[in-house]
Amino acid sequence: MQREKLIPLWAFMLPLGAILIWSLNIVVTRYISDYISPVSISFYRWFFAFIILTPFMLLKVLKQRKEIKPNLKKLAVLSAFGMVMYQGIAYTAAHYTTATNMGIINAFIPVFTIVVSFFILKDRPSIFAILGSVISLCGLIYVVSRGNLSTLWESGGHLGDALMLCAVFFYAFYGVFLKKWQIKLPLLVSLYIQIIFAVIYHLPLITYFGLDHLNHQNISSILYAGIFPSIISPFLWMMAVQQIGPSRTSIFMNLMPIFTAIIAVIWLDEKWTVYHTVGGICILVGILLAQKQKVRYTINKKLA
């Protein structure tokens, strides 16, 4: 009987560090929204990430250009969904909602991924996935309505939450396309090519909307966004997947709304309320339940 490989304790610090960085980035996104436009911060983030990675990645990309070329269209689509639409809309949402709400809505990515997977990958959800999605949706509605469902119909009151939902929906497409295509490239090479496309996509946007200047109020946040959540977190996450596996790693995503809320309360003086607690618990319970995929919502052919 083969023994299960013992996972070192330090390996669990990898996804924890990645989630902490991403959570802090949500709060940074909310903080910097008062000092720079969404298009500008999004462009600067990926431009600085490109500048930092180029000395390490350029030769590798040139050597693997034959393997990269057939995947360029797919990498362009991934960049559009994951780096431009998701992150750009999230930066816009930060002008109209709290970092706490952004963190909670961001935790809804696994549920949206189940829905998108059904239509694109024809991946039928299990009973657990359906039930978990419904519970998470109820929790999300409770948070967005601030504990009062009648407020959902107030005009303009939840623009930021609605935008963040759109951003999360686009990121779900990113994850599903990533799974569908299974691009056979080193992860850092794939990340670097997507960053290049992200910079290119932003050129017409900054031409139309303009580019804000860097100053003492926004430079530190931009550098943080360009280095930590754009490069270090993905690297830590990839190492975690190798060390402890994708399933165990994905569970750590459920800590993001908690970390985000704690940081937002300390830094931005945001308030954690009862509706955040009730709705957040519903969302997390639903997500954990949705990850159970053993019982399928189909009839076993052997019993037919």
Rank of each mutant, 00 (worst) to 15 (best):
I281F: 12
T54C: 13
V77T: 15
L14S: 04
V28F: 03
L78D: 02
S145V: 01
K5M: 04
Y44G: 01
A290T: 08
A90V: 06
N106L: 06
M57L: 13
L185Y: 11
R248F: 08
K302Y: 13
V39F: 11
L211V: 10
S233N: 11
R45D: 00
S250K: 14
V27R: 00
F228I: 07
T29P: 03
I266Q: 09
A90F: 03
T92H: 05
I120Y: 06
E4F: 06
V116I: 08
R65D: 09
S136W: 02
P246G: 13
V39L: 11
T97M: 09
I32K: 05
L137N: 00
A172F: 00
P246F: 15
Y174E: 01
I283P: 00
N71H: 09
L187V: 10
N101Q: 12
K74Q: 14
F12K: 04
F43A: 06
L187M: 06
S221G: 15
L187G: 07
W272S: 15
G279W: 02
W46M: 10
Q243D: 12
F48V: 10
K180I: 00
T207M: 14
L211D: 04
R248I: 13
A240S: 09
I287P: 00
L24A: 06
I135S: 02
Y297A: 10
Y297G: 15
V77A: 13
L191C: 07
N148Y: 03
F12P: 08
S136G: 15
A49R: 03
T298K: 09
T92R: 15
P8T: 12
Y86K: 00
K184Q: 13
F259Q: 12
K301Q: 13
E4I: 10
L188E: 13
N218H: 09
F47K: 01
I281R: 04
R296K: 06
I104N: 13
V168D: 01
M164W: 00
L288M: 08
R124T: 15
T100C: 08
T273E: 09
S230M: 14
Y171Q: 00
P8V: 06
L288P: 00
F128G: 10
V115R: 07
I196S: 07
I7H: 07
M57T: 04
S220H: 14
K301D: 11
M57A: 14
V115M: 08
R30W: 05
V115L: 14
I231A: 12
A129L: 02
P234K: 14
F177S: 02
Y31A: 06
A18C: 04
A172Y: 00
M1S: 14
L214S: 08
K294T: 05
S79D: 08
D269F: 12
T151I: 07
Q217I: 10
L121P: 01
Y96M: 00
M238I: 13
T260K: 05
F112Q: 06
F209C: 01
H276D: 07
P38H: 05
K66Q: 09
F43I: 11
P125W: 07
I231Y: 11
I266D: 06
M102P: 03
